[in-house]
């Protein structure tokens, strides 16, 4: 058995969730190779080489790979595919965008959002907004999987740069798609998908300005900031903060939901958190069914006090 991991190299760096995909590949067993891509890949490659358990790093370098366009990357991975029994990527927007395209060209099925490896071709995954945990067996010759990274340890073990590298390129030039730009939200907060603590705000915050109280609390707890769909739709928070069925999936040690009603589409993205706290003025809000600790109160009265208590510790 051999696994090829398509590493998420957005922003010209190896995504912090790569370790989780490697953990999943280790549970499958066999050799593990990494596919990385970018414009200037020196840092990515040396990082990839130093991860324990990686046999080989395939490198696609060039201006055309500066941003991970599915049309550019697919032919490269399709050429490598026959050498592998498994092709994995994180269930990030990167992996979800790319892997189904590759799989279709190979005539293989994809198992999305795998959260447990039962056997090398049997997996568990959630569907129906997290209401159903399904066990599935994939009969495709090459197992193409996206991995729910919160379900696997992301702790990378470092090793001396032992993995070999090999450059790859493609004859086909992508004239179909072009990267035009990206609008990112600069933040000094930890990455949402790997943070130990997440503070998430919902429509109950009432405005974009009021959302700053979430940021103050997040700062105190060195937490990442999340948001419900309602808060993003209302413009209180950027899209990349959205936690839920169709946004990001998080599973921190501590998740604090503030002013979030708790629709199943939201809880699907955070219910595997270790400890969940809900603060909401509506005692009947469904968020309390997902929470370990609940506080029925006006968040604008409680949060300043909460922040003060944390500062006094």
């Amino acid at each position: 058995m051999a696994t090829l991991i398509i590493a998420d190299c957005e922003n010209n760096q190896l995504a912090p969730t790569t370790g989780s995909v490697i953990s999943a590949a280790q549970e499958i067993g066999g050799d593990i190779d990494l596919f990385v891509s970018g414009h200037d890949t020196n840092d990515i490659v040396s990082n990839a080489q130093s991860i324990a358990g990686v046999r080989k790093v395939w490198v696609a370098e060039g201006e055309e790979y500066a941003h991970p366009l599915a049309e550019s990357l697919t032919p490269l991975v399709v050429n490598l595919a026959p050498q592998y029994t498994h092709i994995l990527a994180s269930a990030s927007t990167f992996g979800k965008n790319l892997l189904p395209r590759i799989a279709a060209v190979l005539d293989m099925a994809v198992v999305s959002d795998v959260c447990k490896i039962i056997a090398p071709h049997v997996y568990e995954r959630y569907c129906y907004a997290g209401n159903i945990l399904a066990t599935v067996k994939n009969h495709s010759a090459i197992q193409v999987l996206t991995i729910r990274t919160t379900a696997f340890s992301h702790a990378e073990k470092k090793a001396p740069s032992s993995a070999s590298t090999e450059s790859i390129s493609s004859d086909s030039i992508n004239e179909q798609s072009r990267f035009m730009g990206i609008e990112t939200h600069q933040s000094d907060r930890p990455d949402l998908t790997i943070a130990n603590t997440v503070i998430a705000g919902g429509r109950g915050l009432g405005s974009k300005e009021n959302f700053s109280i979430i940021e103050t609390l997040a700062h105190k707890l060195n937490a990442a900031i999340g948001a419900s769909r309602a808060a993003v739709d209302a413009g209180y928070a950027p899209n990349d903060w959205q936690v839920g069925q169709t946004g990001k999936v998080v599973a921190p040690k501590l998740y604090i939901a503030i002013g979030i009603s708790g629709a199943i589409q939201h809880t699907a993205g955070m219910k595997d958190s270790q400890v969940i706290v809900a603060i909401n003025k509506d005692a009947d809000a469904p968020i309390f069914q997902a929470a370990d600790y609940g506080l029925v109160a006006d968040l604008f009265k409680v949060l300043p006090q909460f922040i003060e208590l944390l500062a006094a510790r």
Partner: peptide, 14 residues
Amino acid sequence: TREVDVGLETIKLT
């Protein structure tokens, strides 16, 4: 304009 994990990406397609 695409909603991606790092923000909003814009691409042009034929």
